[in-house]
C-alpha cells in the first residue's frame, strides 16, 4: 500500500478512538493524551489491529503504549512507511 498522509491516519485514529471511548470525534484533539479520553489497554490493542488492516503495514503491539497522543501515534504510523 502507498504511504498514507498524516491527515488520513489522524482521521482514521480519531474515528476509532471515538468509537471505543464514545467521545465525539470533534472533542478528540491531536495533542490530548489518549488515556485521558478513557482509552483502555484493550482498546489500544484492538486499534493497533485496525491500523494494521487498514494501512497494510505491520505494527508493533507496543505502538499505542509508546506514544501518548493521537498526533504522536499517527506520526509513528506514517514513519513506518519510511522504514520499509
Amino acid at each position: 500500500m502507498t504511504k498514507p498522509t498524516l491527515a488520513e491516519v489522524t482521521d482514521f485514529l480519531r474515528d476509532h478512538v471515538s468509537q471505543r471511548t464514545k467521545v465525539p470525534p470533534e472533542q478528540i484533539l491531536g495533542s490530548t493524551v489518549l488515556v485521558d479520553f478513557g482509552l483502555e489497554s484493550i482498546d489500544a490493542v484492538l486499534i493497533s489491529g485496525h491500523i494494521e488492516d487498514r494501512f497494510q503495514i505491520e505494527v508493533e503491539p507496543s505502538l499505542m503504549f509508546e506514544y501518548q497522543t493521537l498526533d504522536e501515534v499517527a506520526a509513528a504510523v506514517v514513519a513506518l512507511f519510511d522504514k520499509r
Binding site: I42, V45, L46, S48, G49, E52, D53, E58, P61
Partner: peptide, 25 residues
C-alpha cells in the same frame, strides 16, 4: 499469540507471507 489468537499466511514456493492476524483476546 503475540497479538491475537489467529493468523493467516500464504505459502508460495515454501515461503510464508502473512495475510492477516487477529488482535486482542
Amino acid at each position: 499469540g503475540d497479538v491475537g489468537a489467529a493468523s493467516l499466511f500464504r505459502l508460495r514456493e515454501g515461503r510464508l507471507g502473512r495475510v492477516w492476524r487477529s488482535w486482542g483476546p
